[in-house]
Nucleic acid binder design. Structure first.
Lengths: 114, 114
DNA sequence: TCTATATTTCTACAATCATCGAATCACGGA
DNA sequence: TCCGTGATTCGATGATTGTAGAAATATAGA
């Protein structure tokens, strides 16, 4: 994943409404949610929501499909996975630093992470 | 980790220079790097760098100590770990989604992530 | 104390962001 | 075709961000 892509993805998530929005879509799963339903759920005016949806779309974190008059938005798990992968590889000293990771971690630590 | 904290951490990393800076500090390890060395390495004016260092400090992602005339900055692995933990728990559909994770993953998937 | 070095704070300014009402576009049904 | 609904785009506005030179602060050494 290119670092420019990472910056855009991070920027897209670095906003209260958008973080909540993305979490909502993640919870909703592949079925996704219509823009209107999201607006109600977040308590944000339609035009404001549309702005945030565009930001997340532009960052490649969400996608949408049309269903009649509604636009259904879904989280792009692949993009999020790639983002996390980048952060774990480049921003954790090379060692797996996830707290909840019950992995073996291969023990390649050359420095004490955390 | 509070979602407000997450937003600030994401915002701090969502900038080209700051992402590069943080990666640099992660690579440098616990020894850290002096502000001057960072400025040279990134090719950024001292005052600009100071601004970015303040952003990262404010977000709790880095810390610093004084060594003579130099201020030595270090990455806060704990904060990064907490951030990744939040993202993995809240933004990945509840399932471990890290690509490089060689874990067992407990198979609690209720939806197909990615 | 005086000077040099390391770094931050101050200041100003351009650029980008977030917000939201109004206008517009897209689609389905009568 | 006309109307109603779901959603985006437009436009204006205030707030925040990024940049970098100049000034100020902190420390070390002579």
């Amino acid at each position: 994943m290119e670092s420019e892509t990472v910056v855009r993805a991070l920027g897209a998530l670095a906003q209260e409404h958008r973080l909540a929005l993305f979490r909502l879509l993640v919870q909703a799963g592949p079925d996704g949610l219509a823009a209107g339903a999201i607006a109600v759920s977040l308590g944000v005016p339609a035009s404001s929501l549309s702005f945030h949806l565009a930001q997340l779309t532009n960052a490649g974190l969400i996608a949408h499909r049309r269903d009649g008059r509604s636009l259904i938005y879904t989280a792009d798990y692949g993009a999020m996975t790639a983002l996390l992968g980048f952060l774990m590889e480049n921003c954790c000293g090379g060692a797996v630093c996830a707290p909840a990771a019950p992995c073996d971690t291969k023990d390649k630590n050359e420095r004490t992470a955390a």
